[in-house]
Design a binder for these strands. Structure first.
Length: 125
DNA sequence: AAACTGACGTGAT
DNA sequence: CATCACGCCAGTT
């Protein structure tokens, strides 16, 4: 059998405004020195399977959203999701290194820095 | 309305 | 480990 069935998800008309707020709140809970993948954030925010929604929200994020530790969200491969050439790419690496995140071969080890929703929520860090 | 575009994820090659 | 192909989702063209 080759079915993959990661179990999509029914769900009906969601509200981008609401979803965005939940996603940003979730990201705010990631402690300094830790990282989470897009899919992980989506799941923790209550939108399983919406990794791309998280990406979109982060892309739209502005100063008006307050302090969002956006740099702590990377892809499931432990790599920076922003295009290599983009200036944001280097910025993200700089910010993460500044908080103690270690890069090995351009990748972050979830084993070492992976955030778990059960961890204490600094809520400010 | 159809096609295209991504700061995604996963399994196969 | 690098690529590719798909699946998925919401916003843009």
């Amino acid at each position: 059998m080759k079915s993959k069935a990661p179990k999509p998800k029914p769900l009906s008309r969601f509200n981008y405004t609401v979803a965005r707020q939940q996603i940003l709140d979730t990201i705010r809970r990631i402690p300094k020195g830790k990282v989470a993948s897009y899919g992980q954030v989506a799941f923790a925010a209550g939108w399983p399977g919406r990794a791309r929604l998280v990406a979109r929200v982060l892309g739209d994020v502005e100063a008006s959203d307050g302090v969002i530790p956006w740099q702590r969200v990377i892809n499931a491969q432990g790599k920076i999701a922003i295009p290599k050439d983009s200036p944001g790419h280097r910025t993200q690496i700089r910010l993460l290194k500044a908080e103690g995140v270690v890069f090995l071969n351009g990748k972050v080890s979830f084993e070492r820095h992976g955030w778990q929703p059960g961890d204490p929520s600094p809520l400010l860090d």
